[in-house]
């Protein structure tokens, strides 16, 4: 099955890249753009048929490597399922 992981900066952690993107968009004629936060999107092919098991493994992957939980949150989604943590 296919899984999607989103890694985002926690609230309160300064995101200078997001700010720079926001400023650029404002300058390009998109004044409606306010706060911008940039994150990461990771697609993984998982050799597992049980979504619950896959999610537990993905959670471990996020904690061990994909996210740095000091500054980042993550969310896991199995393709074809509801999004969940």
């Amino acid at each position: 099955m296919k899984a999607r992981v989103h890694v985002t900066l926690k609230n309160g952690v300064l995101d200078p890249q997001g700010k720079a993107i926001g400023h650029s968009l404002n300058r390009l004629g998109f004044p409606e753009v306010g706060d911008v936060r940039q994150g990461k999107y990771i697609e993984l092919e998982i050799a597992e048929t049980d979504a619950t098991k896959a999610k537990a493994r993905l959670d471990e992957m996020c904690r061990k490597l994909l996210a740095n939980t000091v500054i980042e949150n993550y969310s896991i989604e199995i393709v074809g399922e509801q999004a969940g943590q």
Partner: peptide
């Protein structure tokens, strides 16, 4: 720090 030998994290320089 990523290995957990020291706490915290090094982020992108604030001025990019």
């Amino acid at each position: 720090t990523e290995a957990g030998l020291l706490p915290g994290v090094l982020m992108r320089n604030a001025h990019l």
